[in-house]
Design a protein around this nucleic acid. Structure first.
Lengths: 337, 337
DNA sequence: CTGAAAGCGCTTACAG
DNA sequence: CTGAAAGCGCTTACAG
């Protein structure tokens, strides 16, 4: 809202708006003398041109949208951090939305981004859009917006878009296998319901590892909820109260790990004496205090950085082939299991 | 980048741009008949007007800036969450910056916000701007930007601005007092250096409580670093290695609590048997697993909500008196100390 | 109730 | 090297 405009600068420097614009954008040619005069006026008055006017005029913007389901989850905080590292370097501005895992808000965020003329979007879908009609609708919206989109973390099968994901299948496979090696045969899982891609991938890794090692999956050890702590807590209570309960349990994100641990500790039990758990995602605090938790690590910050880079490259080369990056996960603390 | 413009809609509906604009903004009067025709075209084509053009034309924007030192800290994640709850309701858009506690980036963020013509800023200063010259410079920038600013959490003494802070003085005072009641007399503190307002306030609360209860403050029990875990970890190592070490320790944010706990656990010691600690900020995970940590709770989400509301009210009533909200803190788990 | 026109603050061919 | 003018997509007095 600075009331200075390019016109003010032009007048004061005794030139035309066009010239001022040229020196600001290092475009066209301007004599050294007038360039300096203009620059000094700009400095004196601390003039900063209106990005809005500029965008409107050029038809390109420097804002990119960032849409994630939950921001109070450190996982997405880390992603955002990584993203900012890259966007900062490139003079991009971030417009932020959080969707609370709500399809409605998801669509709304996308529309708002469109209004705001962003030049690209980093996107973690709030839901899976499993219903074909909804999927189609989403595709339509995305197409309407008509700017590069990079999908992060939740691979909901938009094969036309760049994406960066974690290798959830192998993460789960390796974790399960490690548990088996450590002698566990009754292995439980607290997963999200299988209408979610992430959940399906993880379930697949889990089951494959079991079968590979000749263990018949036992449905009574599998619990399906969502990605929230409260639900995981409920499920964990059931699981732990089972009379022939598992000796080891896998969870499916940081929240569900926490929910599980709450249920466990409420029973006066502890890890790893009473049960072994392999969490998904590092929980920094627990690490710090040496809590004996084994977990599958996913480097969210790298994901953010990678996603931002993909978006920028796509903006530069709209026709380059699609890229899908799959980041490895890492099993930490397996000696504990 | 949707290529539809108000002109396209106007043509298709057989009216002028002005009329389309009127029906979109519910302004002026339009006959029911043409209103419906226009609306139906808008719906059919999924038209969303360019926020940029709109802003440029009206001279007001619907974007507000959000500037915080670190986003991967759940404390700020929670604030952001609260903020979004309010901005969402009000159709405001958030432009996001993180400054990594770096004065340079702080200024840069402010400038970028200016370019982007935000209509208000939610701001947690990266540093204290203790140096008078720097302070003056900051004031100048803020004045230049010339939009409402609400300061969050770090009260660096910009008395001209609305702000929302926690009552750090009383939080610390109460915590210290509680420790004394529980029989502690050698109480340590891991604080940030006293050039920071937050640190000074907390130190004041700490010292006042001691003196009030006839305990002479002992400098050898006070450690000063910053708000980061690594530094706190170093200091904690020193503190714990002291031969006549404190029986209870206060930390000054979630990071420093973690740093302290790491040092403690590395020594094979634990809370509360070997030492009592009162943290600042809830650390959700620790709560969950029943870790016996006493802490001063600050409701960051409320802070975010409150700050957003203040900003909006200021935008509506530019001349209302300045408001400074001080949120209470709460001591949790004192029975553990 | 409705349209033509000017204007928001920039950029960018087009002349010169 | 430099300026006048048109245009980006909206809004808003001003006429009618």
């Amino acid at each position: 809202m600075s009331s200075l405009t390019i016109m003010d600068i032009a007048k004061e420097a005794g030139v035309s708006k066009a010239t001022v614009s040229r020196v600001m954008n290092h475009t066209g040619s301007v004599s050294e003398k007038t360039r300096e005069r203009v620059l000094s006026v700009i400095r004196d008055r601390q003039f900063t041109p209106s990005a809005m006017a500029r965008n409107l005029s050029t038809g390109v913007s420097t804002a990119i949208g960032f849409v994630v389901p939950e921001i109070d989850n450190p996982f997405f905080g880390e992603i955002l951090r990584g993203v900012m590292e890259i966007t900062d370097e490139n003079g991009l501005t971030l417009i932020f939305y959080t969707t609370d895992d709500d399809a409605e808000k998801d669509r709304k965020a996308l529309h708002l981004l469109e209004n705001n003329q962003v030049c690209g979007i980093l996107y973690t879908p709030a839901v899976d859009y499993g219903d074909p009609a909804e999927r189609k609708e989403l595709r339509k919206i995305l197409k309407e917006i008509n700017v590069p989109v990079v999908v992060m973390d939740r691979n909901i099968g938009l094969e036309e878009l760049d994406g960066v994901y974690f290798d959830d299948y192998h993460g789960m496979y390796d974790a399960t296998e490690q548990l088996i090696r450590n002698g566990h045969t009754r292995i439980g899982i607290i997963n999200a319901t299988l209408d979610r891609v992430l959940a399906r991938e993880r379930q697949r890794g889990f089951l494959d590892a079991l079968r590979q090692h000749g263990i018949e999956p036992d449905e009574s050890l599998m619990y399906f909820g969502n990605f929230r702590a409260t639900k995981a807590y409920e499920l964990a209570k059931e699981l732990l109260a089972q009379k022939n309960r598992p000796t080891a349990v896998l969870t499916c994100n940081n929240r569900t790990t926490i929910g599980f641990l709450r249920a466990l500790h409420e029973r006066g039990e502890a890890v790893p004496d009473d049960i072994t758990v392999v969490g998904l995602d590092r929980i920094e605090v627990l690490d710090t205090i040496g809590y004996p938790l084994c977990f599958i690590e996913r480097d969210a910050r790298s994901m953010g950085r990678k996603a931002a880079k993909l978006l920028i490259s796509r903006m530069k080369f709209p026709d380059r082939p699609r890229i899908e990056v799959v980041l490895d996960t890492k099993l930490i603390g397996q000696e504990l299991s």
